[in-house]
């Protein structure tokens, strides 16, 4: 699906035509540069690789320098593949926000969620905890409770929800409405929240 790479700027709220206050996320999307065009004959599938953000020359490996030189652009920080663009894209073309997104469309946003560290089951999986502070409870307010039966099956099932690392994973949020496209600033305003902290890279696709 066609899309762009961008960066989360932050959240604010705007008013709809009906006067409702809508929470929204502002994303700086693009301009992206086509760094590679993958074709059925050469790569076995069709896709367009886009690059976004500048990377220092000296922090770029020789191999990647060659890759960017081929496209005729400066080294880029983030590369991602998209497909199904309406327009014909060639190596080195610039893709802008107004080429792809229109107001009222629904998009998917991919980002890396904020890391929460090692969290217990109450925060991580929404368990209720014990729910009682008295009646013999001690140290067990946020405990998970039983994790299975006894001698049969004599093991804990795979996928049992337990404490562990929370956040800092790739998350896709589906069907977010595009409220506004601001081509002069390169910004897109999307209804609702988007994974990641301010300034984190996000992929927006239809």
């Amino acid at each position: 699906m066609p899309g762009l790479i961008g960066r989360k700027v932050g959240m604010t709220s705007i008013y709809s035509a009906a006067g409702k206050n809508i929470p929204c996320t502002i994303i700086e999307a693009g301009p992206c540069v086509v760094t590679q065009v993958k074709t059925l004959e050469k790569d076995g599938y069709e896709a367009v690789q886009l690059g976004y953000g500048d990377r220092k020359e000296k922090r770029t490996s020789q191999a990647m320098k060659g890759h960017f030189k081929k496209a005729g652009t400066s080294p880029k920080r983030k590369l991602a593949e998209f497909k199904g663009f309406d327009q014909e894209l060639a190596l080195g073309d610039e893709v802008k926000i107004e080429d792809i997104f229109k107001e009222g469309e629904y998009v998917f946003v991919v980002g890396k969620s904020k890391g929460k560290g090692f969290q217990g089951v109450v925060k991580r999986h929404g368990f209720g905890g014990v729910g009682q502070a008295t009646h013999g409870q001690h140290n067990r307010l946020r405990a998970p409770g039983s994790i299975g039966a006894a001698s049969y099956p004599a093991r804990v099932f795979k996928g049992m929800r337990m404490a562990g690392q929370m956040g800092n994973v790739r998350v896709t949020v589906e069907n977010l409405e595009v409220l506004k496209v601001m081509p002069e600033d390169g910004l897109i305003v999307i209804k609702g929240a988007v994974p990641g902290h301010k300034g984190s890279t996000v992929l927006i696709r239809k």
């Binding site: 960066r7 700027v9 604010t12 709220s13 502002i26 700086e28 390169g186 305003v189 301010k198 300034g199």
Partner: peptide, 25 residues
Amino acid sequence: MHLIFGHLEPEVMDKIKDIANKLVE
């Protein structure tokens, strides 16, 4: 508008306010 990768410029909050001012009267 441009942000430096990896960390945020201190004026980012101002930028959000600027954009909000643009969108909301």
